[in-house]
Simulated scan of single mutants.
Amino acid sequence: MAEAEVCVDCQPDNQQVPAVKVPEPASAIPHNPLDPTTFVAPSPSIAPSVTIEFCDRCRWLHRATWVSTELFLTFPTPALKVINIMPLNSEETGGRFRVWLFLDGQPPALVWDRKVEGGFPELKLLKQRIRDHIQPGKSLGHSDK
């Protein structure tokens, strides 16, 4: 088993509660933190929905809630029925910020991964990627210019 990835984006203080290991399903494909084809999506919920996974140790709760609010404002129900924000706090999930899209009858689509993409999503691009899956042809107004 590969050595656990260490969060390089935060340095938790010594007063923090010890990290809880989040089990991921076993897979025949070995996990590579920079290869999206080896990522395991969280459990699906009502579709269409979005799940935002983020490193809690990096203090990215506010960013995750801001992104979820912007997505709900852009894609009100029934376009998106649920947006989950999922804090993660383990060595394996250090520095993670992923956005997953769940649609009926389709495998989960990874819309954004901070490590693969080299940073956080610009909302314009994230909205365009989600729109292309759930409402192709919908105008996003200034986000399309």
Rank of each mutant, 00 (worst) to 15 (best):
2 A>Q: 08
3 E>M: 11
4 A>H: 09
4 A>R: 15
7 C>R: 14
7 C>V: 03
10 C>W: 05
10 C>N: 14
13 D>A: 13
15 Q>H: 14
15 Q>D: 15
16 Q>C: 10
18 P>Y: 00
18 P>N: 03
19 A>R: 09
20 V>Y: 13
21 K>I: 00
21 K>T: 13
22 V>S: 09
22 V>Q: 12
23 P>F: 08
24 E>V: 10
26 A>F: 02
26 A>P: 07
26 A>M: 13
29 I>R: 15
29 I>K: 09
31 H>M: 05
31 H>N: 08
32 N>H: 14
32 N>M: 06
33 P>D: 14
33 P>F: 01
35 D>L: 11
38 T>F: 06
38 T>E: 14
40 V>Y: 02
40 V>C: 01
41 A>H: 00
42 P>A: 03
43 S>T: 00
44 P>G: 15
45 S>G: 14
45 S>W: 11
46 I>A: 15
46 I>C: 15
47 A>L: 09
48 P>F: 02
50 V>M: 15
50 V>Q: 02
51 T>G: 09
52 I>K: 03
54 F>C: 10
55 C>F: 01
56 D>C: 05
56 D>V: 00
57 R>D: 11
57 R>G: 05
57 R>N: 09
58 C>H: 06
60 W>I: 02
61 L>Q: 12
61 L>S: 15
61 L>Y: 12
61 L>G: 09
63 R>Q: 06
65 T>S: 02
65 T>M: 09
65 T>H: 13
66 W>L: 12
69 T>Y: 06
70 E>F: 02
73 L>W: 07
74 T>P: 04
75 F>T: 04
76 P>Q: 02
76 P>C: 12
77 T>I: 06
77 T>M: 08
79 A>P: 01
80 L>D: 07
82 V>W: 05
83 I>P: 00
83 I>Y: 04
84 N>W: 00
85 I>L: 12
88 L>S: 08
88 L>P: 02
89 N>E: 15
90 S>F: 00
90 S>P: 05
91 E>G: 11
91 E>K: 08
92 E>A: 05
92 E>P: 08
94 G>S: 13
94 G>Y: 04
95 G>M: 11
95 G>A: 10
96 R>M: 05
97 F>P: 03
97 F>R: 01
97 F>T: 01
98 R>H: 12
98 R>G: 02
99 V>T: 03
99 V>E: 04
101 L>Q: 01
101 L>E: 04
103 L>S: 13
104 D>P: 00
105 G>E: 05
107 P>R: 09
107 P>G: 05
110 L>Y: 07
111 V>M: 06
111 V>I: 10
112 W>H: 14
112 W>F: 06
114 R>E: 14
116 V>M: 07
118 G>H: 00
119 G>W: 07
123 L>C: 06
124 K>P: 08
125 L>F: 02
126 L>P: 07
128 Q>N: 12
129 R>C: 06
130 I>S: 01
131 R>D: 10
134 I>K: 01
138 K>I: 09
138 K>M: 00
141 G>Q: 02
142 H>C: 03
142 H>W: 10
145 K>H: 13
145 K>T: 11
